[in-house]
Design a protein around this nucleic acid. Structure first.
Lengths: 114, 114
DNA sequence: ATAGAATATGAGCACATTCTAATATTGTCA
DNA sequence: TGACAATATTAGAATGTGCTCATATTCTAT
C-alpha cells in the first residue's frame, strides 16, 4: 500500500462514496467534459429533477463539485479537474481496448470461487 | 460522457461500490501490490477477522477479487490487474505532488455554496 | 478421533441511502 | 404584483450497509 496513508484513504473513500452510484457517476462523466447546468444534466441523464438535485447536492457536499448560479440556471462543474482522472481510469478499465475486467456479472446467486 | 455507455457505467458503479469503504479500499491497495492471505491482510489492516472476511467476500462477489486456498490459508488477489489503476489514480489525486483536490472536509454542518 | 488454526457464514440491530411526492425558493418578465 | 421557470429542500417509506457475536467449515497435526 506504498504511499497511501490511512488519512488519505479516508479522503479517497469519501470521493468514492460520492461517485458509487449510477446517476452520480454519469454526472461525473458529463462534467468531466464540460460544466453543465442542472437542466442540461437532467436532459442528459433522464433523471427526475428533485432526485438529480439531491445527488448534485451530495456531490457538492462531498467536495466533488462546485456550482454557481446565473440568473435562474445553476452551473455545476468538477471541484478539481483531477477528478476527471477517475472517470478516465474507469473508462480505461471497462471500455478498454484489451477488454479487461469482466467481473462475474451481477451476483449469480451467491458463492462462486472456493 | 464520450465513450462511456450506460451499460459500462453500471458495471463501473459496481466496482466503485465495492471499493467505497475504508477497509475495502485499504485491502485493494494492499492487493494492488501483491496477493496476500487473509491473516496477512488482517495484520496489515488491523480489522476484526469476521468483519474482514465479510468484506473480502463482498469484493469477491462484486468481481474485484479472486481467491484460492492453500491448505488452511486463503490467498486473495485482484481479479484483474487493471483494478490497480484505480488505487493509482486515487493516489495521484490525493497524494499528488501538486496537492490537488482538497474537498471541503467532512460535512461542515450543511449548506455551503450557493 | 480430537484439538487447534485459519476462514467463512448467519442473525440481528443500528444507521445510511435512495426514491418519490409535495412544497419552498429564487429570479425573470409581463 | 402575479405567473412561470429552474432549482432546492423536506418528509417518509423502503431498502441497503456495516458491525458484532456466535457458530460453522476446513485443514493439519497429534
Amino acid at each position: 500500500m506504498t504511499g497511501f496513508p490511512q488519512e488519505k484513504i479516508h479522503e479517497a473513500t469519501r470521493a468514492l462514496r460520492a461517485v458509487a452510484h449510477e446517476l452520480r457517476l454519469a454526472v461525473l462523466c458529463h462534467l468531466s467534459e464540460r460544466p453543465m447546468t442542472v437542466s442540461e444534466l437532467q436532459a442528459a441523464t433522464g433523471a427526475v429533477q428533485s432526485n438529480l438535485s439531491q445527488h448534485l447536492a451530495k456531490m457538492r457536499l462531498m467536495g466533488l463539485l462546485t456550482c454557481e448560479r446565473h440568473s435562474q440556471q445553476v452551473t455545476y462543474r468538477l471541484a478539481d479537474p483531477a477528478f476527471a482522472r477517475l472517470t478516465e481510469t474507469l473508462k480505461s478499465i471497462y471500455c478498454s481496448p484489451t477488454g479487461a475486467a469482466c467481473p462475474g456479472e451481477d451476483p449469480p446467486s451467491k458463492r462462486s470461487t472456493l
